[in-house]
């Protein structure tokens, strides 16, 4: 048990973790009680990730960990060690917006814009796995993201438009070239 106690003591202090954030390697020193949400916003100044309850009840803090949408408010920063994390700041590539971003901006998918980053990432994960989802599948994938502004309809339409643009655009973002995006 001595060994256990020693190890533990070292971990009540800040721990250094290494992970990839938006395809860049990052080293952060975090306390065990810090969530990934706090690490992203407060240590890395990636304030594009929002929060609306910090209890897993609204979905505003969703980011992608190894391509999967998760809630950063309920994810210990320590457990992101070795993971690849995608936030909204990393969606545009080489100054070009992702087709989802384009469509949301054009078609009213974002009103106040507060739930938008989490919704965009959730949709990106969906399209990476399943390039041609129908309305019900989009609805289901977004059922963990509350939006108070839009009534969701223009969000669905934005996703559907992005699918078309992904299909038809030669210049559009090649998702398969993005590390950790699955595909």
């Amino acid at each position: 048990m001595n060994k256990v106690t020693t190890l533990k003591r070292s971990q009540q202090q800040n721990a250094h973790i290494g992970c990839q954030v938006n395809r860049e390697p990052v080293q952060v020193s975090v306390a065990p009680g810090k969530t990934l949400l706090e690490m992203l916003r407060e240590d890395l100044q990636l304030t594009g990730t929002k929060h609306g309850c910090e209890l897993g009840e609204c979905g505003a803090c969703a980011v992608l960990v190894d391509g999967e949408p998760i809630l950063s408010c309920l994810y210990l920063a320590l457990e992101a060690e070795g993971c690849s994390i995608d936030t909204v700041e990393g969606m545009a590539l080489d100054g070009r917006l992702h087709p989802l971003q384009e469509a949301f901006a054009d078609l009213g998918g974002a009103q106040c814009g507060y739930c938008t980053p989490a919704i965009l990432l959730t949709c990106k994960a969906l399209l990476d796995k399943q390039p041609d989802p129908d309305r019900d599948q989009i609805r289901e994938a977004l059922s963990g993201n509350l939006c108070r502004c839009t009534g969701y309809q223009q969000i669905f339409e934005s996703v559907e438009e992005a699918i078309l643009r992904l299909d038809h655009s030669e210049q559009g973002t090649d998702l398969k070239s993005v590390p950790g995006s699955g595909g």
């Binding site: 304030t47 949301f104 901006a105 054009d106 998918g109 814009g113 965009l120």
Partner: peptide, 19 residues
């Protein structure tokens, strides 16, 4: 909308984003 691009890139600075 004129602020559309900011809203989809996380650039819109809400009050709690001020550091």
């Amino acid at each position: 909308r004129v602020d559309g691009a900011d809203k989809v890139t996380g650039q819109t600075c809400f009050a709690d984003d001020i550091m």
